[in-house]
């Protein structure tokens, strides 16, 4: 994975910001290409909206010809959505899922990054921990749900534990991969200036690993959300998972779909927060910000 696109970085390398005339020409050129780019973005966004609209229309028409227990139409789902909001069922459930996700994913992120750094920098730590990481990464971890309930009982703790267990491994693997991939020339450079191990991790390996870590966090977030919903469905029957389980048992397809859509909203919000965080802490990884002055 590279920090900037090869083409953009080559352009920058060829044109040092020394010549004002060239700089102006470049800015004008980039504004023109910005216009072209925004038009292209507009076009793709338009096609996407159209695609979703066509899909919803077909669904609406098809749903009208099918038993509503099998498939609720979009309008039915919308009605259920409004009704559940009015009854005060949906949003508390949504917030509960956010809360479990926030706690579980937060623990997995911190733990996964710390363990990943250890495994990336120490061959001994790597040798000790690798069998477990490989095992858990390969195991369908929702199979552990009954065991987790036996250990920690029914409640918040067991749901958070499931969430952590699902999310942790991708974060560990990506972090250690990013740390281990730190270019040898940068590590040599750090040794020449007699950096301590702590300084190498803080100033060289960790910044280099940030794009890898965020890739791991995105995968971990998706897995954590599965953990949240599975936990609520299987353990507490509360929150969005509880709604999904109960509505499914009662063949209430419209509220069921409303709850599912709400749970994907949880995932979308989490992903957006992650991306904003990445831009904030790793601005050098944004091509457009490479010229930014501090």
């Amino acid at each position: 994975m590279s920090l900037t696109t090869p083409r953009a970085s080559k352009l920058k390398a060829l044109s040092p910001p020394t010549d004002d005339g060239a700089g102006t020409r470049r800015r004008v050129a980039s504004r023109a290409s910005g216009n072209r780019k925004s038009r292209r973005v507009l076009k793709t966004v338009g096609i996407q909206i159209l695609s979703v609209a066509i899909f919803l229309t077909i669904w609406q028409i098809a749903g009208g010809h099918v038993n509503p227990i099998l498939l609720a139409t979009p309008t039915h789902v919308w009605d259920a959505f409004v009704q559940m909001s009015r009854d005060g069922v949906l949003w508390p459930a949504f917030l509960r899922a956010m809360e479990v996700l926030g706690c579980g994913f937060g623990i997995a992120a911190v733990g996964g990054i710390v363990i990943g750094i250890l495994m990336g920098r120490s061959t001994i730590a790597r040798a000790v921990l690798n069998p477990y990481v490989s095992f858990f990464q390969a195991t369908p971890l929702i199979a552990l749900t009954p065991l987790v309930v036996i250990w920690t009982g029914i409640g918040f703790t067991s749901e958070i534990l499931i969430t952590v267990l699902l999310a942790l491994w991708s974060i560990i693997i990506n972090t250690s991969e990013g740390i281990r991939n730190t270019p040898a020339n940068l590590l040599d450079m750090a040794r020449v200036y007699r950096s301590s191990e702590l300084s190498i991790v803080r100033n060289v390996a960790l910044p280099h690993a940030i794009p890898y870590i965020f890739a791991g966090l995105r995968i971990g977030l998706a897995k954590a959300l599965i953990g949240v919903i599975i936990g609520e469905m299987d353990i507490s029957l509360k929150g969005l998972g509880g709604l999904i389980q109960n509505d499914g048992d009662a063949f209430q397809t419209a509220p069921l779909l409303a709850a599912i859509i709400c749970s994907s909203l949880v995932g979308v919000i989490g992903t957006v927060i992650l991306e904003l965080l990445r831009r904030r802490i790793a601005p050098w990884a944004n091509t457009n910000d490479a010229h930014r002055k501090v």
Partner: peptide
């Protein structure tokens, strides 16, 4: 002092902060 074939500057640090890195000890 060591000058590398690849400049080996830290991409996440400004030129000034890259120089500061060599002074940490």
């Amino acid at each position: 002092g060591f000058v590398f074939q690849d400049p080996s500057l830290l991409p996440w640090r400004t030129v000034r902060a890259n120089l500061a890195f060599a002074l940490q000890r």
